[in-house]
Design a protein around this nucleic acid. Structure first.
Ligand code: MN
Ligand code: MN
Ligand code: MN
Ligand code: MN
Lengths: 212, 212
DNA sequence: TATATAAGTTAGGTTAGCCTAACATTTATG
DNA sequence: CATAAATGTTAGGCTAACCTAACTTATATA
């Protein structure tokens, strides 16, 4: 079976980037997957060559739009399988991740959709993680039009200070936002819950969202 | 994921040996799996080293008892998965083999048993093949005691003429037999349907059965 | 801001599982 | 029973995905 490793890397990167809400470091993939830094480095280059991730020498890593698409396909299968194993087969929640990690590479899109339906379209996996809807594609916050609404996926910010600021504004995964106003090459005004905030255009191109 | 190839080889060998009711040739594995003769030769040696098959240079191949056990584990998973994909998910019968071929390596024994129960313990897969019961272990016909009953699994006969004779007596996979009499180092007398037949002791050690 | 520590890279290797081409042995058949 | 065809083996090679050890670059902190 092909691409098993690539799929595991993509799912790992997606998970880490969402978890940290920023671009990730290769050592984290190494720790998450239990694979040496050298091997991770090798795979990182392959994924970059396929334009699934953005990566420069000695720098941090983040998924491209194409990478998010691919990652969500496998995350979707993984979480649907976990739900199936847990809710329908009654297998312990502590065991389902490991088994889904194997099955995710073999299950077809068709079968995953049928499982989804059988489960009555769950929103989350047994561990509480959101099951992605890969029908809606990710884009950058800056691409959303005025008056439209979107959900934050995660950012690709590199700097920790910048991230702190963004997080403290409430720009975190799953946050719902509405674009209020856009000034050419200037800041973006948006509604987030009850508060209105403004974000620089440069940062807007570092935030992945999904349009509602 | 480890042992994927080995499991595919074991399932292929089990299928072929049962299908032909005799020891098989490596070229058949090659054709069945779409793998070169050279590669099959390589794997054959590994399986023989692990005592999963019996094999001598330039000779035919058959599963050992241990090999049957291992093969049945994967055949069981394969057919249960096919049944699940077909009957519960409603995936076309023409597609389920391919998908089960991938999933069989990742599904746990526990999950397979739960699927089995969910399906209400089917006896056959969507293509009509018997789902093996790996609780009962295979042994040689000669090992069965007088008055006991058994089901033929398959033979490990090498010679085509010998096989013809055995097949024509009704010693074919799934045949039910009862041992009527055993003469030390002599022939075995057995009941097969309405007829009583006698089989030489040498042949008895070439027929795998499962005791009832 | 110098230096220690962490992170990332490179070089060199291993293993499983595949391949083709050439050669050896067995089996089938005229 | 000789020879052609089929089957099996060997030699040599390849790729993906891993590894360790040594080295380079970036980051943290005193
Ligand atoms: Mn999981
Ligand atoms: Mn996996
Ligand atoms: Mn099948
Ligand atoms: Mn398989």
């Amino acid at each position: 079976m092909k691409d098993i490793s690539k799929e595991d890397y993509l799912r790992a990167i997606y998970h880490l980037q969402k978890d940290q809400n920023m671009a990730i470091r290769s050592v984290e993939i190494s720790k998450y997957l239990g694979i040496s830094k050298a091997s991770v480095n090798e795979m990182i280059r392959k994924l970059a060559k396929e334009e699934l991730i953005e990566y420069k020498l000695y720098s941090s890593i983040n998924l491209t739009k194409k990478g998010i698409e691919e990652a969500e396909k496998i995350v979707y299968k993984h979480k649907i399988l976990e739900s199936f194993l847990s809710k329908i087969l009654g297998i312990g929640k502590n065991k389902v991740h490991e088994e889904a990690d194997k099955l995710e590479h073999g299950v077809s899109k068709e079968a995953a959709k049928k499982l989804d339906k059988l489960l009555k379209n769950p929103k989350t996996c047994p561990h509480g993680g959101k099951i992605p809807n890969s029908d809606k594609k990710a884009c950058l916050l800056g691409d959303i039009c005025v008056n439209n609404e979107a959900t934050v996926l995660f950012t690709k910010i590199k700097n920790k200070q910048t991230l702190e600021r963004i997080n403290s504004l409430g720009i975190v995964p799953e946050a719902k936002i509405k674009i209020l106003n856009k000034i050419k090459k200037g800041p973006l005004e948006l509604q987030l819950g009850n508060s209105k905030i403004a974000i620089g255009g440069d940062i807007c191109s570092q935030i992945y969202v999904k349009e509602k």
